[in-house]
Nucleic acid binder design. Structure first.
Lengths: 113, 113
DNA sequence: AAAATCAATCGTATATTTGCGATAAGAAAT
DNA sequence: ATTTCTTATCGCAAATATACGATTGATTTT
């Protein structure tokens, strides 16, 4: 992909928000997170039973959620217990809240058109 | 891409939420939305001036935001005025709120591990 | 030590996303 | 009618995402 040479200086938090949004941009990953919230944690195998997807596919979705920081894995040999990463989950919540709350004080903003 | 043959029955709102998250999964699109919120609306050309991206690239990002339903265009010949689609914006807000608020009543939930 | 279990990773195939320049399409102004 | 202005779309290239089966690696059980 051709990429813009200049780095764009986005407002603070914009890239972090995009990162979280990207992690949420697939229904299976949202469903996994809901599942984790419902029962606080789970193993990869539990999810393989719940969704009609290959084990490798589930594992890949978990990897993306982990890379985005939304979940964390804890070794419980021979299994791995996955939980929501509360700290980052709260950060994501706040970033989304902030984005969607901007319109509340729209009356005080200058209308440009 | 190989695709699962069986359709997955996600919980109500999951696919809509994924659709909105996907639209937000790029910092430029978040920045465009912030810009729209700040001054209630704008023209494509305004954004081309703000971001170091080609006009065609901006247009494509606007198209995705429009397809996701987050913005809408209004013909103001020879320009097009873009605004947040308030109805869908609120729906997105509620879907994200719901996702992130599940943990508040976690004490009442059964812990499975 | 060998077998079984569980999850990650590899390799592959295909679809989608992101970016650009060039072109097209529409209305407005000359 | 022609030119100008504004935005969308096309065609291309490269990167990323999504899915699968097969394999690997680590741990536990036998």
């Amino acid at each position: 992909m051709k990429r813009s040479l200049e780095h764009i200086d986005y407002k603070e938090g914009t890239e972090a928000l995009a990162k979280y949004a990207k992690a949420l941009a697939h229904p299976t990953r949202i469903a996994i997170l809901r599942h984790l919230e419902n029962q606080s944690c789970c193993f990869t195998g539990d999810l393989v039973d719940v969704f009609p997807l290959a084990q490798s596919t589930i594992s890949q979705h978990l990897k993306e959620l982990k890379n985005a920081g939304l979940i964390q894995g804890e070794l419980k040999p021979p299994k791995i217990k996955y939980c929501i990463n509360q700290k980052n989950w709260m950060e994501a919540k706040m970033l989304f809240d902030e984005l969607f709350s901007l319109d509340t004080n729209v009356v005080t903003k200058e209308k440009k058109c």
